[in-house]
């Protein structure tokens, strides 16, 4: 089964993203991590298609997690999309600098989450499995 890894300390955000993604594509396994400590090892062991990574998390923040992913030879080219509550330009440029493949702002409505899931679907599934 195709897998997507969500790393976010906020349980509700994980739930909303998961719910929205499954609405777009039900044949999907969502792996959830509440911190980025095991990100690299999980990517290696589970081989998800992509990782949706929050930025502001206690302990190791999203940028440090992304850095660790990019520094490991086996996960270096793994697709990572930052999904953050922050709309700050500084966060977006930082994500770009650390090598994120995309940056999405957490929406204020569930409709917005649907759109977010569509964007993720298109950028991850359609690109990987073109018809």
């Amino acid at each position: 089964m195709r897998k997507i890894l969500i790393i976010d300390d906020d349980k509700t955000d994980r739930l909303l993203i998961k719910k929205a993604l499954l609405k777009v594509e039900s044949d999907l396994e969502i792996i959830e991590l509440a911190s980025g400590r095991e990100a690299v090892s999980t990517i290696k062991s589970e081989s998800p298609l992509a990782t949706l990574l929050d930025i502001r998390m206690p302990g190791i923040d999203g940028f440090q997690v992304l850095k660790a992913i990019r520094e490991d030879t086996k996960t270096r080219s793994h697709p990572v999309i930052m999904v953050s509550g922050s709309d700050e330009t500084s966060d977006k440029s930082m994500a770009n600098e650390f090598g994120a493949d995309g940056y999405l702002v957490k929406p204020d409505s569930f409709l917005g989450y649907g759109e977010l899931a569509q964007v993720i679907y298109k950028s991850v599934f359609e690109r990987l499995q073109p018809e």
Binding site: D10, D13, L16, G85, E88, K106, S109, F110
Partner: peptide, 24 residues
């Protein structure tokens, strides 16, 4: 201010979304 507002915005976003989900 930045941290506080982000911390406040997350639960607020959730309240709004779940109210929306309940309605829908």
């Amino acid at each position: 201010a930045s941290l506080t507002s982000h911390d406040l915005q997350a639960p607020l976003r959730h309240i709004g979304i779940f109210a929306e989900l309940l309605q829908e």
